[in-house]
Amino acid sequence: MAFSSVQAQETLKTALDGTFAPHAMPTLDGKVEGFNVDLVNLIGERLGKTVEITAAQFSGLIPALQAKTYDFLAAPVTVNGERAANLLFTEGFMDTNFGFVVAADAPEYASLDDFKGKTIAVNKGSAYDSFLREKEAEYGWTVESYGTNTDAVAAVLAGRADANLAGATVAAWAVKQNRQLKLSYEYPTGLVWALTFRKDDVEGRNLVDRAIECLKIDGSLAALSEKWFGVAPVAGTTIVTPAKGYGVPGFEGYVEDDHAPSCELK
């Protein structure tokens, strides 16, 4: 489906994993809510369109996109070289950093070195688990893996672990739900989350990219960060800083362009 036809549509179809809190999670009435749900609905508002959101398993999202079931994906997808070779991405809407969670009365940790000798709880088999184990010998920390990140956070609350490591937004959500916890050191990965399109939909990607720029400059994304993560974005971070051109610089599919970010999208 070329975007020349999508642009004329009243409704855009998108999908995400509805179990990835706080980006998307089920509501009591069977719908989904969360940061990415609000994000794509705001994009629809800026473009003057209704967005139809489907919650599905993450593993099936990309095949369904390629089959043209959806116009784009609302799920937060980390942009990397392998994915960029097969998909088209908007500019990043958020940095995909790692975040440590500690007890509210814990000391301040300002680097990975500060966690030397500590016990860190993590979701078994996750990217954060792999990260900790790869650096276990270097930093001398003890890694305790749990079946869910909720269980790993509970280990911190119970005093069985000094910290929990997860994605920065998941970490912020855990802290937002429990005042016995606080956010600690955030490890920068240098990667971003973006919205996903098919390779042949350059025009669609570019239009939604511009809508994301609008949400950055009009303060909407900062407001969503406060709402869902309880965090005010720092100046210069991806969530409040439009990127030059279309897509993610340094990856296949990026188009250098000198357009000025604005909310004049129609």
Rank of each mutant, 00 (worst) to 15 (best):
E226M: 11
A235N: 12
G253L: 03
P233W: 05
G250I: 02
S220H: 07
Y246L: 04
V240W: 03
F251S: 03
E226V: 14
G247R: 05
K244L: 05
V240Y: 03
E226W: 00
G247A: 02
G250M: 00
I239V: 15
T237G: 00
G219D: 10
G250F: 00
V240P: 04
Y254M: 01
P242C: 02
I239H: 03
Y254Q: 06
A243E: 13
G245F: 01
G219W: 15
G253E: 02
C214K: 13
G236A: 06
K216W: 07
D218T: 12
V240K: 03
W228N: 10
I239P: 02
P249K: 11
K216H: 09
G219I: 15
K216N: 09
A243P: 00
A235W: 04
A243V: 04
G250Y: 01
L215A: 10
E252F: 01
A222S: 15
I239A: 09
Y246C: 00
D209G: 13
V240M: 03
P233S: 07
L207T: 14
C214A: 12
L207H: 10
K244C: 00
V255E: 11
G236K: 13
G236Q: 12
A223R: 15
G236T: 10
E213Y: 12
A211G: 07
S220Y: 06
T237S: 14
S220F: 11
L215C: 10
E213V: 14
A211W: 10
W228D: 11
E213F: 06
P233Q: 10
D218S: 12
L207F: 02
A235K: 14
K244I: 04
A235Y: 05
G219Y: 14
A211N: 11
G253C: 08
E252H: 01
L224W: 11
L221T: 15
V240C: 03
S225K: 10
G236D: 07
L221S: 11
V234D: 05
A235F: 04
I212D: 07
F229D: 05
F229S: 05
T238V: 14
L215H: 06
G247Y: 01
Y246K: 01
D218I: 12
F229G: 07
S225L: 02
S225Q: 14
T238P: 08
G245Q: 02
D218V: 11
D209I: 12
Y246V: 02
V231C: 08
V240I: 14
A235G: 03
G247V: 05
L224E: 04
V248E: 06
F251V: 01
S220I: 13
K216Q: 12
L224V: 11
L221F: 09
G236E: 09
A222V: 05
V231K: 10
S220C: 09
V208N: 08
P242V: 00
C214H: 10
P249M: 01
G253R: 03
E252N: 11
W228A: 08
E213L: 07
G245E: 03
S220W: 10
W228I: 08
A243F: 01
R210S: 14
A235E: 15
A235H: 05
C214N: 08
L224F: 09
V231M: 11
G253A: 08
W228E: 13
R210F: 05
E252K: 13
F251K: 14
G236F: 09
E252L: 09
